[in-house]
């Protein structure tokens, strides 16, 4: 009696496993398929007027308002720069990163007259939109981090060009 009950239960379990339970077929529209539910008959619907992605307004506000520069921001900028920028621009910003050593077109040096005279917004915009063969890093570098990198670029420029007359105590450290 027990054996018969056990075999019946196993049979029921096996039968329950029959059929397509892979969730492959679902009650939904396929991409770009016809859809009677919508007026234009298409599954792909344009965004309603005025819709923005979550966080877009905050990002737009942050883009126009550079954060105050302190050591924490510069350290953050240094970290982000070493990760995202140094492969091409080099750690010292001379456009001689490892990717360039391996044949990639060299970016300009941050220590050139043109880029020393460029305002920080230029660096922010290049990170955001790309420039030449450099593609946009907007998806990788947060808005605040872009300003941090721009500030760190100023530090890089400063490190390679200090007027000793402005910093007299520096004279004792120079060879």
């Amino acid at each position: 009696m027990k054996a018969r009950l056990l075999s019946s239960l196993i049979l029921c379990g096996a039968l329950a496993g029959c059929g397509d339970h892979s969730m492959f077929r679902q009650n939904r529209y396929g991409t770009f398929s016809k859809a009677a539910l919508f007026k234009n008959g298409s599954e792909a619907q344009p965004l309603p007027v005025g819709v923005v992605a979550q966080g877009d307004l905050a990002r737009a506000e942050a883009a126009g308002k550079p954060p105050p520069v302190d050591m924490a921001l510069l350290s953050r900028g240094r970290e982000r720069y070493d990760i995202y920028c140094s492969p091409c621009h080099g750690y010292s910003g001379r456009g001689d990163g490892m990717i360039v050593q391996r044949g990639f077109p060299a970016p300009p040096s941050y220590h050139s007259d043109r880029l020393r005279a460029a305002d920080a917004q230029h660096f922010f915009d290049v990170i955001t939109n790309g420039y030449g063969v450099m593609y946009s890093y907007a998806a990788r570098v947060d808005v605040r981090d872009r300003w941090a990198i721009a500030a760190y670029i100023r530090a890089l420029q400063q490190s390679q060009h200090v007027d000793v007359a402005d910093v007299p105590e520096l004279r004792s450290k120079l060879p």
Binding site: H111, A120, A151
Partner: peptide, 9 residues
């Protein structure tokens, strides 16, 4: 954030 004067290159 202001530009720095001069060039070292």
């Amino acid at each position: 954030y202001d530009p720095l004067p001069g060039s070292s290159d």
